[in-house]
Write a protein that binds this DNA or RNA. Structure first.
Ligand SMILES: [Zn+2]
Ligand SMILES: [Zn+2]
Ligand SMILES: [Zn+2]
Ligand SMILES: [Zn+2]
Lengths: 167, 167
DNA sequence: GGAGGATACGTTATAACATAACGAAACGAA
DNA sequence: TTCGTTTCGTTATGTTATAACGTATCCTCC
């Protein structure tokens, strides 16, 4: 699960996500209605967390004006079936690149470019469960959101520092 | 750092937090004003995350009615000096039991009783940094919020299950 | 193919959380 | 005391999320 680069074939990301959603919903006997599919598609417009009200606006631009509950209901559905993750620290939502395979979200957030990626490290998961167990606490769900610099922005910053050093 | 039990000497918790805050602010040359100290005290009224507007209401009951910015400013101060943590998944705030010693919040949240505790496991911290580094991502700040059952609620649930089994 | 329950949706209103902007007051060093 | 800095009060507004209720659609069973 690499960090998304600036120029990758993103339409492929979207297509893969929609296909996976279709399949996962069939498997679960859940109905992926028009609204839900379109909201999922809009969430996938970028690899950045999207707010509910931004989605609402996007819907409007597609000629599908709606009120907040419509979007929140679609988001609730997508969350419930593991097709998206909530990014609590940003009040946003992001598409899950590998639904079906159950996992809490481990999300990397670049403070520079805003891009997000999933970490999805089972060892990390396990370390949390073990560490919590030492306090007698049994884990149900994890929210892990890590801020920092993505590879691209890090490279960029380094080259800027060289510039400053020369100057 | 054990999970807070139902009956512990909580006034001692509050006192310790206030003392630590006093000391930490002196060390940093920061001004722990009346408003700030009182808000900190109110955050510590329980071991559950508290919302800004709940604090606002509490302030009112103390005869110190205020507007939202007053509370948010105090919270910003307390956050900036590591005296409280923000619980993003609950839009709430919780007192930090060991300020000064720099750390991102690793927070355990009981879905049954609402109590919170800090995990503060350096190995976990390190695992995240390492895991992220494998993707070329450099970490700045972590938000770790873990939902589950605290020891007390777990014991309770187990005994309930026994009841059901007998019946 | 119609009856009836379950699921999904539209709509209005409102709750809950957070910040912008500006002036007055308190503080602290010179 | 003077002046700059920090803190605070206040008004207004922005942003995120949900309650409540009726309607439409779907799906199953008869
Ligand atoms: Zn992509
Ligand atoms: Zn970046
Ligand atoms: Zn306590
Ligand atoms: Zn509990």
């Amino acid at each position: 699960m690499a960090f998304p680069t600036a120029r990758h074939d993103h339409s492929a990301c979207i297509q893969a996500a929609l296909d996976a959603a279709e399949q996962e919903c069939r498997r679960r006997g859940a109905r992926l209605t028009d609204t839900r599919r379109i909201v999922l598609e809009l969430v996938w417009e970028s690899h950045r967390p999207v707010g509910a009200y931004a989605l609402l606006e996007s819907l409007g631009k597609l000629g599908r004006s709606a009120a907040p509950p419509t979007v929140y209901r679609a988001l609730d559905f997508l969350l419930a079936h593991g097709l998206i993750h909530r990014v609590a620290s940003r009040n946003g939502f992001i598409g899950c690149p590998h639904p079906g395979h159950a996992h809490g979200g481990q999300i990397l957030l670049c403070t520079q470019c805003g891009m997000a990626a999933e970490l999805d490290d089972p060892a990390l998961d396990q370390e949390i469960v073990n560490s919590a167990a030492r306090l007698g606490f049994s884990v149900n769900r994890q929210t892990i959101e890590v801020e920092g610099l993505c590879p691209v922005c890090r490279a960029q910053r380094n080259s800027e520092e060289e510039q400053n050093y020369v100057a």
